[in-house]
Amino acid sequence: MPLIALTGGIASGKSTVARSLAARGAVIVDADQIVRDVQQPGTPVLAAIAATFGDGILQPDGSLDRAALGAIVFADADARARLNGIVHPAVRAESQRRFDDAGADPAAVVVYDVPLLVEARVDDPWDLIVVAYAPADVRRERLVRLRGLTAADADARIAAQVSDDQRLAIADVVIDTAGTLDDTERQVAALWERLTGPHPH
């Protein structure tokens, strides 16, 4: 069972690559979805976040107020480190459980769709690290056009993540998403051939 890490900066086309791999039969394990799942009301993770950052990060219904928490940790590296110390171990355990479930099928290709690979999971035993890549100016334009951000907000989001150089340095495969969707699809098809052909490694 090949275990693939798929990462990329904000607006890098990572989700497009993930969807294309899923359409070919890959099992996608979505790190962002796991984060949401382990932070549901009633979970130890949410209780620990509230104990650390105060009940102001909770909505009236007891769920996490992501915007309130984001405002605290976005600008404060120490707060971000405390949050990561709570969330990352739970995400690691849950993602492993999902990998194991998928691995019951020895032919499964499991893709861990993870934005913060460089920051959190780079040393895990991945068979292949795939980086979806588009230059920062392309990503800025996408954030403004597709997500309605101002140019300044787009730059801040991009700057808050690790640099492209750091991501590209760990890549086994780079999918360049700056071109057309067809270009991206061709690269994904070649990757799939590599993963499922007679010699996947």
Rank of each mutant, 00 (worst) to 15 (best):
R139K: 06
L64F: 08
G197Q: 08
P2R: 11
V138Q: 01
P44L: 10
I129V: 08
I34L: 06
F53N: 02
P198S: 15
A90G: 04
I170Y: 09
R145C: 06
V27L: 10
A136N: 12
S163C: 08
A151S: 10
E119C: 02
R139W: 04
E193A: 15
A79M: 13
D61C: 00
D183L: 05
G25F: 10
L128C: 07
A71S: 15
A102N: 03
A178I: 01
R194K: 14
A90E: 11
G197N: 10
V188H: 01
L83I: 03
V162H: 14
P106H: 00
V38A: 05
D176W: 14
Q187Y: 08
L117Y: 04
A156F: 12
T16A: 12
R36Q: 10
A75R: 15
T180V: 02
V144Y: 09
V122K: 15
A159Q: 08
V144T: 05
V114A: 11
R194I: 03
P200W: 13
P198Q: 13
Q187S: 01
V29K: 03
V111W: 12
V38Q: 04
G42H: 12
I72C: 01
L46Q: 04
R19T: 06
R140C: 08
P135Y: 07
R157E: 08
E119T: 00
L149I: 01
L181I: 06
A71L: 14
W126Y: 05
I158K: 04
P115N: 01
H201I: 02
R142G: 00
V91Q: 05
A81V: 12
E193H: 15
A50R: 15
R145A: 13
D61A: 03
L116V: 02
I4K: 07
G13F: 07
V174W: 14
A154V: 02
T177H: 02
R92V: 00
V45R: 09
R147H: 09
D37F: 10
L181V: 00
D176I: 04
V138M: 07
S163N: 06
R145F: 10
P41E: 07
A104W: 12
S15A: 08
F74N: 00
I57K: 11
L21H: 02
L191K: 01
A171G: 02
A50K: 14
A90T: 03
G148D: 08
P115V: 05
A51T: 12
V173G: 07
A51D: 15
D100S: 01
D30K: 05
A93N: 09
R186G: 08
P198L: 15
S12Y: 10
A104L: 15
L83Q: 03
G56N: 13
L117W: 05
V73S: 04
